[in-house]
């Protein structure tokens, strides 16, 4: 006899988990919910006397397939939020009516049949399954093996990006840069002030002007750079104390990630 408590636990876990497919917004959340659904189904298999399938369910679905899903989610951007607003007119109602209709029809059919259920059912242990698989279904197993290999090769081909141009050597890259008019020498390192090695301050050229290129472009885009005016003033302070107060009043461009300036101000 089938354990009733187990059924209800499995039912609640799987249905709530699968409902996330309809309502959750983040792909990662959905994937994790489906993992729990798969685990619940594995438990159901075990409860239905199929321990081998339960283990295979855990290994194949939870361990391999859903992890693959998660992996692809990471690849295409895990924080892509999806709007649940429907864009196709009437799609939502068709979908709900179709899904509800199929559920109703199936349940009504299932509810009307009563099948004999033997109580002396022995669990399908792996040995019995192996006997059936490799005797009656051996040809199917072979065909499935071919299918799996084909799928693997197909996936490789689908995701393969052919190289359209020959790979450039380092010498060629350097030559191309020089031909394009780039600076032949390395860019100067940022953060020239001895007392501050932060990467967000441009280097100075011999005339004392900042070299904008020396700061990483990423910081530039994030507005996390600073022009180093206060450091300069601190240096100039030693020569000309009259200008000392000015830089402290200047508002910071991006204060929340620039603690060093604060520290300098306090120390002065």
């Amino acid at each position: 006899m089938v354990n009733e408590a187990l059924f209800w636990i499995v039912a609640i876990i799987t249905v709530t988990g699968s409902l996330s497919l309809l309502f959750a917004r983040k792909g990662a959340h959905i994937a994790m919910s489906i993992v729990t659904v798969m685990c619940g189904l594995a438990a159901a298999y075990v409860g239905l006397g199929a321990p081998f399938l339960g283990v295979v369910q855990i290994v194949v679905y939870t361990g391999a397939v859903m992890m693959l899903f998660l992996f692809v989610l990471m690849l295409v951007g895990v924080d892509q939020r999806e709007s649940l607003k429907e864009t196709i007119k009437g799609q939502r109602w068709i979908a709900l009516a179709g899904a509800g209709g199929i559920a109703l029809l199936l349940i009504s059919v299932i509810g009307r049949v009563s099948l004999y259920s033997p109580d002396d059912f022995t669990d399908g242990n792996p040995e019995e399954i192996a006997l059936v698989l490799f005797s009656d279904y051996v040809l199917v197993i072979e065909v499935l093996a071919a299918l799996l290999i084909t799928a693997a090769v197909g996936a490789l081909i689908l995701t393969h990006v052919p190289r359209l141009v020959p790979k450039h050597s380092q010498v060629e890259i350097a030559e191309a840069r020089i031909l394009a008019g780039a600076d032949p020498v390395n860019k100067p390192m940022p953060g020239v002030y001895a007392r501050h090695n932060a990467l967000d301050v441009p280097a100075l050229d011999p005339e004392g002007k900042p070299i904008e290129d020396s700061v990483s472009r990423v910081l530039e885009i994030r507005h996390q750079t600073q022009d180093g005016a206060e450091f300069r003033h601190q240096l100039e302070d030693t020569d000309n104390p009259d200008h000392a107060a000015q830089p402290a009043d200047a508002p910071p461009r991006d204060s929340h990630d620039r603690n060093p300036r604060q520290g300098e101000g306090e120390s002065r």
Binding site: V15, A44, L96
Partner: peptide
């Protein structure tokens, strides 16, 4: 019956 419900949820998704 549980399978039927899960199937309809999946198709709706």
């Amino acid at each position: 019956i549980l399978a039927a419900i899960l199937f309809s949820i999946g198709s709706a998704a």
